[in-house]
Design a binder for these strands. Structure first.
Lengths: 117, 117
DNA sequence: TCAATATATGAACATATATTCATAAAGGAG
DNA sequence: CTCCTTTATGAATATATGTTCATATATTGA
């Protein structure tokens, strides 16, 4: 007794085809996921918060976030690669600051979501 | 020769204290991170996209996302726990749909970010 | 040149996460 | 009741991720 995959009653095959056609490409979806992944970690959120308030060097960030300098450095590298932060060097010191004006709106949406319940 | 932790030249101790005082509580930060983590996965993004277009049953979602029913079910459970989707039962079929109007604005910000480069 | 300092990075490790497989649970048809 | 179907779920597994430790790199000052 041959059977088709469930095409449930609530939607027609044509509609499903249409919806499937309009989804963004896999590559775009993956980029979006990677973008959100960056914000999916407390340490990184703290770093971004502090940088949203003031340009800071690595050691000060480590002090504020209360985590080892190495951990901070690793995370900053990630944030750099994702172009969310930029830096300038002054002697041996590296000063980091935000490099994306969307960060604040991102935070805002998340806080709105949290406040709802 | 005793040494204080680096308090770099670009910021005063008072400013640092002030900034540190105003960061959200750890629990809030963690909730924000968890919220973003949900969007940090391609499979979940696809599910959310499809649901943003139409209420769908699990089997149809599996068909659209091209992934096993079990994988979809597991992810839907997560999305349910995070209250991003809701469902209704009809016989053995479960229909899922979006349960959060922020999802579209979230997507928008992410796409804006991606389009910038 | 040598010592001290700030940052970056590679390796190792522990933990988290996504997927699959097998199967359970529960409704509907006969 | 029995079989078929849809969904949910637990266990196992592979992979990804975050942190630490040790150390390299690079700059500054003596």
């Amino acid at each position: 007794m041959k059977r088709q995959n469930c095409l449930c009653k609530s939607i027609s095959v044509e509609e499903m085809e249409d919806i499937k056609t309009h989804i963004p490409e896999d590559e775009t979806i993956q980029k979006m996921a990677d973008f959100f992944k960056v914000f999916g970690d407390g340490t990184r959120l703290k770093i971004l918060y502090y940088l949203s308030r003031h340009e800071l060097c690595v050691a000060d960030l480590a002090l504020l976030v209360q985590m080892q300098q190495s951990a901070i450095s690793h995370q900053l590298k990630l944030l750099r690669l994702d172009r969310l932060v930029k830096y300038r060097k002054e002697g041996t010191t590296t000063y980091y600051s935000l490099d994306d004006e969307h960060i604040n709106s991102i935070f805002k949406v998340a806080l709105e979501h949290l406040q709802e319940r």
